[in-house]
């Protein structure tokens, strides 16, 4: 693995001086060897992602345009699965519910993540590192755990209800704490917040103290500084956090399954069912791509509007 040839000019000079056999020079000059070395380094990772991610996504997309007959997928081109996804009432309701939940969860996550990163950056400067580290630990501690533990926390015989009964505040368990849309949003936010913090934090690091001071100096109050300088400068990070959270929420399967209940169901559950129980890959694929397309459209609109508003 050669990592030495960092500057093209220097390489050319040195490569020439080092002198290869005449045959070698004819086949590959210094530049060619450098390109080959770089290619060999970046090649495996690129090929791997291309073969095991892009190719599967392409196959997955093709499936959405094909048909199932007798539990076999046959290459008959059609748009039936998409038509169904977009016109069938139950699918439309499902999609709409997914967007509501993903929208709520991503707004909550990005909002709290921004508030957290902003507090670290401007109010608790000295504690930035340890507090950020705490969030990173949360990010790597148990995706499934963060979902199913809420059943122990909020369930009918869970900690919160036991405590409320023990204190004599309630006599019956509060069953609205779990298995509904609100619960799905809160639980999604619980594991999306750590993901959302890092990009926002990074964006706020790019807002330099001098820029804040300059805005103050030129007549801005705290709010003016926030809206005219801090928010626009941090906007790319805020947007990225929110979009990441939105996509992750829209494609989640575990939360609606474990704590969503009847009105907290989402596309992910149905997609999984079409793959695991119906074996109707085309329908599942069409649902997945419809969700992806709708999500990306929403994300695009937010990006456009956000960029216009925060300037």
């Amino acid at each position: 693995m050669s990592v030495t040839e960092a500057r093209p000019g220097a390489t050319a000079a040195r490569g020439g001086r080092r002198g290869q056999g005449p045959g070698g020079r004819r086949r590959l000059g210094a530049g060619g060897r450098r390109a080959l070395a770089l290619g060999l380094q970046v090649g495996p990772a690129t090929a791997f992602v291309a073969f095991f991610l892009l190719a599967p996504l392409v196959v997955f997309f093709l499936y959405s345009l094909w048909r199932v007959r007798d539990y076999e997928i046959v290459a008959e081109w059609n748009l039936d699965a998409y038509k169904q996804a977009l016109t069938d009432d139950s699918y439309r309701r499902l999609l709409w519910n997914t967007i509501k939940i993903a929208g709520g969860a991503s707004l909550l996550s990005a909002g709290l993540a921004f508030a957290f990163a902003h507090t670290l950056r401007f109010k608790l400067r000295r504690w930035q590192e340890p507090l950020l580290f705490a969030v990173v630990i949360a990010m790597f501690s148990g995706y499934l755990v963060r979902v199913y533990a809420w059943r122990t926390l909020l369930g009918d015989s869970g900690i919160v209800n036991s405590a409320l009964r023990g204190l004599g505040i309630t006599s019956e368990p509060l069953s609205f704490l779990l298995f509904n849309r609100g619960a799905a949003i809160v639980v999604l936010a619980n594991f999306l917040i750590p993901l959302a913090v890092l990009p926002v934090y990074a964006a706020l690091q790019n807002v330099r103290d001098a820029e804040i001071e300059a805005a103050r100096d030129l007549g801005c109050g705290s709010w003016g500084t926030f809206w005219r300088v801090t928010a626009p400068l941090a906007w790319p990070g805020i947007f990225f956090s929110w979009a990441l959270a939105f996509l992750a929420a829209a494609g989640d399967y575990v939360v609606p399954q474990l704590v969503g209940g009847a009105n907290g169901t989402m596309v992910g559950v149905v997609i999984t069912d079409t793959f695991q129980t119906d074996y109707n890959f085309p329908r599942g694929a069409a649902l997945a791509f419809t969700t992806l397309l709708v999500s990306l459209t929403i994300i695009g609109i937010v990006r456009f509007v956000g960029g216009k508003v925060l300037r």
Partner: peptide, 27 residues
């Protein structure tokens, strides 16, 4: 600072990177 009739030229200039030259001066 925003209530003082005093302005500063910062060592790093602290121009707003998301704004044009015109918008910086018009700020």
């Amino acid at each position: 600072p925003n209530k003082r009739n005093v302005n500063t030229v910062f060592q790093s200039y602290a121009l707003f990177p998301h704004k044009s030259v015109f918008d910086n001066i018009a700020f």
